[in-house]
Nucleic acid binder design. Sequence first.
RNA 1: GGGCAAUUAGCUCAGUUGGUUAGAGCAUCUCCUUUACACGGAGAGGGUCAGAGGUUCGAAUCCUCUAUUGCCCACCA
Length: 932
Amino acid sequence: MELDKQYNSRQVETKWYSLWETKGYFRPRSDRSAYQAPRPTDKDAGPSYVIVIPPPNVTGILHMGHALNNSIQDVLVRWNRMKGRDTLWVPGVDHAGIATQNVVEKKLAKEKKTRWDVGREAFLKEVWKWKNEHGSTITRQLRRLGASCDWTRERFTMDEGLSKAVREAFVTLYERGLIYRGNYIINWCPRCQTALSDEEAAHKDVQGGLYHIKYPIPGKSGPYEKMGEDHIVVATTRPETMLGDTAVAVHPDDPRYKHLVGKKVILPLMDRQIPVIADAFVDPEFGTGIVKVTPAHDPNDFAMGHRHHLEQINVMTPDGKINERGGVYKGMDRFDARKKIVHDLEALGLFIKRDSHLHAVGHCYRCDTVVEPYLSKQWFVKMQPLAAKALKAHEEGKTTFYPDRWTKVYLNWLGGIRDWCISRQIWWGHQIPAWHCEKCQAAGLVSRDSGNEEPKMSPKSRVPGSDGIIVAREKPSKCPSCGNTELQQDPDVLDTWFSSWLWPFSTLGWPAKTEDLKKFYPTSDLVTAPEIIFFWVARMIMAGLEFMGEVPFTQINIHGTVRAATGLKMSKSLGNSIDPLEVIEEMGADALRYSLVMLSAQDVYLSREKFEVGRNFANKVWNACRFVLMQLEGLETASTDPGQFKKVKLSLPSRWILSRLEEKAAMIEKHLAQFGLAQASTELYHFVWDDFCDWYIELAKPMTQSADPALKLQTKKVLFYVTERILRLLHPFMPFITEEIWQTFKQKAADAEAWPETIMLAGWPHEEENKFHNAEAQKAIGLLQDAVSGLRDLRIRYQIAPTDKLTAVIVCKEPGMIETLRAFEREVKVLGRLTELQCVSAFQKKGAMAASSFAAFDVFVPLEGILDPEAEKKRLQKKIQETEQWIENIRKKVENPSFAAKAPKEILEKEKEKLNDAKSLLVSYKTQLAGL
RNA sequence: GGGCAAUUAGCUCAGUUGGUUAGAGCAUCUCCUUUACACGGAGAGGGUCAGAGGUUCGAAUCCUCUAUUGCCCACCA
């Protein structure tokens, strides 16, 4: 079996993925006894390694953010799996309540139907049908990416087990007094017609208006247009809410208005008298210093209403129209009503002006409609007690964020946490496990949810049913209070995140005490984007502590956001997205993954060209391996055993590459251990490309053609050994191409029976497995590289074609170095394409020659008839000038007494060495100039 | 209003706890179809490391301020 000349990513990817999956390689080791890790020597095989996928939205398709997130996770999972740890990656999707419902509602709208037309049951059937037909798009796409999830454990937030977990969590919190119901101002989306949590109302700066309106002060009698100057002025951004005003407020210490407190003003258009109250919330500096108070339509006013026992007048319908309490404006859309009201006020002479005003307005995160602060009865989770546990866990060092700066963001949010509105007035989701007893409610036993009260830590009564609401895990047969069997389940469903926050343990079987839960909880790492720290990460930590008594994961890796090259967030609606699947089709999943990971050091600004790095690299790897395979023709003894080189006197390049491999593997390991995937992949890229391909393979070529059979053999063995290890180092990043190549390598290996079935289960090359470190070899190859570069430079400088004959003399300036130079004379001759090469320690220049100079040596080539003395003179003068400047700089540094006194010895040595090198160079240049 | 990032070559970005004559990829230019690879090889040009102060023997790196950009949070109507 040989590798095709062209790498066919499509074919390779589908072939290997289905094989991996069907053979069960993605499952934890403990689940696949037939495939035990083949290398028990792995020192890092420690506790199990578990991560949970951030469940993507069931309506979603794979976008670049997912591709990045899952590439990173897959690198970590594959790396840990190779290290021999019992590894589990649980995949799944969430039901995305509002988003999914919207999709199906849109479908219905095409038939000119609404969900109310078809009814709840039939509608839910439709949603399930949609889910079953389209809900697996994203998981199919994750497979294309190569994500090595254990699909046998795939979960859906609405499946039976997770629904049970949701009910368990809800009831438990209720019993602990951490769930309450009440009338409060929440964010209401008039389009989706549901409540939203604070996190779901995205604030955006909007250029709006600040409307100044006169509220007349009533005189003796008569209509207010005759009140003359007797009025106050309020400023508001939402004039339409004035229909529900029940007071105006001033600051208690504001001298301008002190006399008004306790008096009444007339609410225009509604002709109601409302009181002037004093409240410290009012900022005398803002606007006119007078605020209209609308307790049913503004959270601040709501609070103020509480303090002053004001009536709450809700003037809006759930779909954002003015209701019957809005008088003549009834039935108008809120924004139309705003215009009409301003117009009417103008007509009455009560409208003063509209100032342009920039302010933050909440928008529905699903449909971008302006949300309305709206008074309604909702279910809430009391968050402070949960947050307190999370804060304590952090103090105890149980949660660590990478990079660290996110810690503060997380802690700040926890510190200022507000209660979580969890009920949604939609149908797709977990229906709230609460049942209403209409008899009890009619009897007036509704103490718990009467609203108009600040939420209490402990409800007044815990006796089930006493308030007409029964919260239970399963539907109760009758009301425990009155025996009524006609119980109605609360129609609302729970926020989708109420199921997502249980994900780390609900997917492992909770509330049942399963083996998985015992073995795999808490999980190891969480990898996610910063956008969902509040939505998901913080809440998972709180849920883990509350329900499991333990944080769900200890390391939280927050990676960058994927953005389009323009800097905007990538999104389909903006038309600036790049479809990862297209990139996979075009360049391969490995290319996509490698490019993304290399760029992931911070926010990722993407354009299509950026994936060329990965594509080119994959191609490079493929071809380098093809070359190595060609060398293995007829070789029977290729093996992965490091011991094979113990008794062999290896060539200098081989000693060098083995030393580099060891060094780089250690560095890559170090980076991976601290989520430095970008650094790790970059190191690997340069090692493979620069060290291995550009130098070692080039150096190896002549050796594999050598007349010396021993040299020939050992070189091929080293090529095989190093390449096989490179494949394993690359595998977490490029799973497909490495598997494909590795399998062909396996067929050439003498120790193939010791190889596992897949590279996935081959051990991770550990730097301590062998001891190839060799400083001398590294130094010598450094000199070799200089010599070869010097020759290439000379060829280019004087336009000598590569095919032209060239001889050279290397003049060693450093005593003792001559032996080293002679040691690789042959290699320099080949790489420099020389017909002849001499290494000498003293040299008398004859005829026209030019040189490349280095600290340790000069490389001379004869250039009879080519050398232009004038140009050469100029070049050398420039070099001399540069070098003198350099020497001057170092000298200044070295001769500074403070430097000598304070700098570490190492640095001092280094600087002195540099100075000597520079001086040596200068001598070379000057000698050359003199000889012209 | 508060907070966090970013600002380094034409473009996109690296730059580890302060110590290389500041790097890479792409783009540009020159040369090379040498039997792994033109998705390649060998070279070249190109930067006062946003600006100003400060700490230090030494600053792209640490501190302060300023400017520009982006993001997150926030109940001043």
